[in-house]
């Protein structure tokens, strides 16, 4: 096959509009074979639309896309055989048991559970004690594991996971990402979307998306390294007033118990400014920016990458 060495997923100027409202505009990106690629962006950024186009559920208005070298429009039948898709909403049969769901989807893909058991073994063993329980009666974390098993049952080459960790507790989220790392080791290309910025660091490369456009595509480290200036965390007893005052001074936003501020000339100048405003109790420290800081920064500058 000529596409043997090319990228697993390629999007080329993809645009999709719903009733004149653009969902994604002119998106181009590529995912390498065997990569764990993250689409990071808030709700409504267009992540699910991209997934639906790539899984052949939706036709783009313009642009081309390929998965494993197969065109999403022309070769949709072959694509359906070689991709696994886990929609953002739990989409298995709630009135069938874990076992029945798994068998059912295996059959639809023309395979059996035992043929690919090796791939899902680690995950399935965690939910196996409940295999006669109906899917609708499972907890959120278990549902996600089952959905992942069903998406993997035909040993897909590319796995699309649409917000797999939304609505799942912190422990299960961590477990889930560990599972993804292990799947990656098996050579499966994984494209995952998430609104949680802290999960971005767990991906090899990420695309930051906002309002249907890509702000930046790179490794998380490179995106953080590209942060143009110094970032400070600052806190005081009167946070609300402080935020107001600092907004007049630089680019400032609340972040946990601190305020993050950038676009200032230096630490001493900043301290002088707050003193002048009458704050006596401020705690100030320089910090390295996280993905969320980069995201906010890119939003403000309009995604100049």
């Amino acid at each position: 096959m000529p596409q043997q060495n090319s990228d697993a997923v390629i999007l080329n100027n993809i645009t999709k509009t719903y009733n004149k409202l653009p969902a994604v505009t002119e998106i181009s990106l590529s995912v390498k074979k065997g990569e764990l690629f993250g689409l990071i962006g808030p709700d409504g950024a267009g992540k699910s639309t991209l997934f639906r186009i790539l899984t052949t559920l939706l036709l783009a208005d313009s642009g081309t896309a390929t998965v494993n070298g197969l065109d999403v429009v022309k070769d949709y039948k072959e694509i359906r055989r070689c991709v696994g898709y886990m929609p953002g909403k739990f989409s298995l049969y709630q009135d069938l048991t874990i076992e029945e769901n798994l068998n059912f989807f295996a059959t639809l893909f023309g395979t059996t559970v035992s043929a690919n058991y090796g791939l899902i073994k680690d995950i399935y063993e965690q939910i196996a004690p409940f295999k006669t329980r109906r899917a609708g009666k499972l907890s959120g974390g278990m549902k996600q594991k089952l959905a992942l098993c069903c998406a993997l049952i035909h040993r897909p080459e590319v796995l699309f996971l649409d917000e797999p960790t939304t609505g799942v507790d912190a422990v299960s989220r961590k477990e889930f990402w560990n599972m993804l790392q292990r799947l990656k080791e098996q050579g499966i290309t994984i494209v995952v979307s998430t609104p949680y910025m802290d999960e971005a660091d767990l991906c090899e490369r990420i695309a930051l998306i906002q309002s249907g456009s890509i702000l930046s595509i790179d490794t998380p480290a490179a995106i953080k390294a590209a942060y143009p200036d110094k970032l400070y965390a600052i806190k005081s007893a009167k946070m609300h007033q402080l935020l107001k005052d600092l907004r007049a001074y630089g680019s400032c936003y609340a972040f946990g118990e601190y305020l993050h501020i950038s676009g200032v000339s230096g630490e001493t100048e900043l301290l002088a400014y707050v003193k002048e405003k009458g704050y006596t109790d401020v705690v100030l420290k320089e910090i390295t920016p996280g993905i969320e800081d980069c995201f906010i920064r890119l939003l403000q500058t309009g995604g100049a990458s």
């Binding site: 898709y85 739990f90 298995l92 049969y93």
Partner: peptide
């Protein structure tokens, strides 16, 4: 409505 058709549609059925 439940969304299961989404999952069925990505299969080669």
């Amino acid at each position: 409505e439940v969304g299961t058709i989404e999952q069925i549609n990505v299969t080669p059925v």
